[in-house]
Amino acid sequence: MMTQPTVIVMTATVDPGDYAADIARRDLEVRKADYRNALQFYLGLEDPRICGVVFCENSGADLSFLRAETLRRGAERPLELIGFCGNRRPSGLHYGYSELGVIDHACRHSRLLGSGDRFFKATGRLTFERISALMDRLPDDCRFGADFRRAYSKEGGAPMRARTELMFFHKAFYLEHFFERRDRMIDSPVLFEEFVPQVILPIRGRAETGALALRWPIECGATGYAARDNSDYNSGAIRTKRRIRAFARRAAPWLWI
């Protein structure tokens, strides 16, 4: 069970800019509402282990839409807003290149991360309503956590993928293995979901690495809408997939789906 203070780092891109054509959920007011609702959820989450929320946005957007002062008044925890212009990626690369840049920026500039050593990275438009239950099941010495799956038959490339919407890092682990290393995605362009296993799998099992959770012990699905196709994470089809995955975690833990 995790017991130590943990920060939520919400990664955000309010204005997709040149990449708007790549996604369906591109309306700026819709995206702003997604981020505002998610921020309100994390600020009000009743879990004393969550010691702060960092909202880090990379399109240089005006963050006054978050109504941060109003949210802070009823908040259970500190809030830090960080904005910068960094929504650029080399041609042909996945959006994850920019997202890693958001986490890097938060590690450099966040006061809350500067005083803490553990954080969840959450895609900022989404919420994870079972995050406290997940923390109850992860070991206190966890250094990294994500939900890995096997590549689907129609997918090429790497055999393992990580669901990157929610990941856990001990800050020292992130700094050692991910910080300022996103350019490794350039030479042989890979999806963010493939890049994470490329980093993690070779170091799995090393004593000095510490505890790595490559499969969530419970199903911890997102609530919200996928940017790529605007699909609802609470649709009937996705709920059915989650029930199957939840059953597999108990009955067939070797079946990573």
Rank of each mutant, 00 (worst) to 15 (best):
M1A: 12
M2V: 14
P5D: 08
T6Y: 10
M10W: 00
G17Q: 07
A20E: 00
D22Y: 11
I23W: 12
R25N: 12
E29I: 06
R31E: 02
K32G: 01
K32T: 03
D34S: 09
N37T: 13
A38Y: 04
L39I: 01
G44C: 08
E46I: 12
P48W: 06
I50S: 03
I50G: 01
V54Y: 03
C56G: 07
S59K: 06
G60A: 05
S64E: 13
S64H: 13
S64Y: 08
E76D: 11
R77Q: 09
R77I: 05
L79F: 09
L81A: 00
F84R: 10
C85K: 12
P90I: 12
P90V: 12
Y95T: 09
G96L: 11
Y97L: 06
S98G: 14
L100W: 03
L100K: 02
G101T: 08
I103A: 02
D104N: 12
A106Y: 07
A106L: 10
R108E: 13
S110N: 04
S110T: 05
G114K: 05
S115H: 10
G116E: 11
D117I: 04
K121L: 14
A122I: 15
T123G: 05
G124F: 04
T127V: 12
T127D: 05
E129K: 14
E129M: 09
I131Y: 11
A133E: 15
L134R: 05
M135W: 13
M135E: 09
D136T: 13
P139S: 04
D140K: 14
C142E: 10
G145Y: 05
G145S: 15
L166K: 03
F168N: 03
H170M: 03
K171W: 00
Y174C: 04
L175C: 07
E176C: 08
E176N: 13
R181E: 03
R182C: 07
D183C: 08
R184V: 00
I186K: 08
I186G: 00
I186F: 02
F192P: 01
F195D: 09
P197G: 03
Q198L: 10
I203S: 01
E208A: 10
A211E: 14
A213V: 14
L214H: 06
I218Q: 11
I218V: 14
C220N: 11
T223S: 11
Y225P: 01
R228Q: 10
D229M: 08
D229R: 12
D229N: 15
S231Y: 04
D232F: 01
Y233C: 05
R239V: 00
R239Q: 12
R242H: 11
I244S: 06
R245G: 01
A246D: 15
L255C: 08
